[in-house]
Design a protein around this nucleic acid. Structure first.
Lengths: 254, 254
DNA sequence: CGCTTCGTTGAACAGCTTCAAACCTTGTGG
DNA sequence: CCACAAGGTTTGAAGCTGTTCAACGAAGCG
């Protein structure tokens, strides 16, 4: 999408957590210089994926965790009948692959939504480094839990009935992550298809399409195919709670 | 509910993974006798919770993981407006509390659905023991991933639109877990309220109630308040896939 | 340029929700 | 022990949201 980030100088980026712009959003966050060098030893050569390229598939042996360096991916599971459920979309600085931590093989799949580059962290080496660097271990745990919390958020979102609120939350989540990346959080580029968004939210394409149109009519967004401009972030934030959960679905604490 | 399991001989159960009937479903699975004794040293005194009692709350400091020994619990998150989303129901042998692994404080809550007894695994001690017993570490990881996979299942379920299918999947999941516990998997005792079930599935109470009635009319179930008899497990299994995802929500691999 | 896939829009339909009321259970106090 | 209150559960009827089916326009790709 953005030519500036697509043309990566790979040689410069190789093995250089220290010099990586994502450093503060990624595993190195809060790690001292000495330890950072050790982390670098755990990072294998980067991989580049084209749109549609698979990072890992269901059943693949667990070899590494992966950090999105540029581009974006989606993760999803297939049920018995081959239906897809998208679990999440992943932007630079986000780590994926935890699903295989235990059974030693992946139980989900990760696919690039656009040309993306990935940092590979072979688990064996990573484990060794984390055992030597407690701060890194804590940081890794923090990242794992961020993942779990994100899944809870996804569940909460799908538990709500109002489709418009779901889409608002989805867009706001993207905007927030754009901000962390120091991108313009009012100018989103949706690398995923409408089908993907619909699946992620538990809706059908038509509904998502109509919702985009409705939000545009309301003056909240300006939608042009894959690029979404958030004209009224305040209104969008409002929509995330306001329309709210129907009274009968509410269930206050206790 | 069942007087035989409610009247626990606590003194006999204290610190005795070795003698625990849940052993094969729980952390000790596949652990040798020597190592089992060391695991026992990581188990603090058991706790008993009455119906409605909280095991941990949002924001509580992370101190331990918990194994359900008898009874059952629900875990849930509260969103900003105080709305509940139930994440799961937990039967004996299941481990909860992972949500706090990273931020060092819980980001969800756990509440007993009936009188329940809990094994407490203080994390500091557990960590020490797992570092000494690799098999235990692997087993713990396996259990964590079971949790992640279960959440994926929950997402897949909520992504489907057909309420009847969701309820069928929910009941089948309970039945399967009953079987693992060597209970009669055709005679379920629903310790959670209809409100809880509805919330878990993203529906309203009335819909759940009607679905129970419908499944009864269909001859699949016999429902009597909290006790559900599965008359036709085959039909129930059928309902879990058959009605299926509407074509427009399907999205085959790729 | 034709093909395919993606995205949008319209109209009818279905399923779940909403609102309302009744029933049953449980617990409390007279 | 019974009356009463409170909450959980069930059932009915109406309304609304999202789905389904269908058609068309736009973009990407051989």
């Amino acid at each position: 999408m953005d030519p500036g980030t697509n043309v990566l100088d790979l040689s410069q980026l190789r093995r250089s957590c220290s010099s990586c712009a994502l450093s503060e959003l990624c595993l190195p966050a809060g790690i001292g210089n000495d330890d950072l060098e050790r982390l670098d030893t755990a990072v294998r050569d980067k991989r580049t994926l084209d749109r549609g390229g698979m990072l890992y598939r269901d059943g693949d042996p667990f070899e590494a965790l992966y950090v999105v360096r540029s581009g974006s991916l989606k993760t999803f599971v297939l049920d018995d009948s081959g239906d897809v459920q998208i679990l999440g979309f992943h932007l630079p600085g986000e780590i994926i692959g935890f699903d295989a931590l235990a059974s030693n093989q992946h139980v989900s799949q990760a696919e690039a939504l656009e040309r993306s580059s990935i940092c590979e962290l072979p688990y064996a080496r990573l484990q060794q480094v984390t055992s030597e660097v407690p701060a890194l271990h804590r940081q890794l745990m923090r990242v794992i839990s961020r993942e779990v919390i994100e899944e809870h958020r996804h569940l909460v979102m799908m538990g709500r009935q109002q489709a418009q609120e779901q889409l608002a939350i989805f867009l706001k989540s993207l905007a927030d992550r754009y901000q962390r990346l120091q991108r313009d959080s009012t100018a989103l580029t949706l690398s995923m298809s409408r089908y993907d968004i619909a699946n992620y939210l538990g809706l059908v394409v038509e509904t998502v399409s109509r919702l985009f149109s409705r939000l545009e009519e309301m003056g909240v967004l300006e939608v042009n195919r894959k690029s979404v401009r958030i004209c009224r972030p305040d209104l969008l934030a409002e929509l995330c709670r306001s329309s709210g959960v129907p009274a009968s679905k509410r269930r206050d604490a206790g």
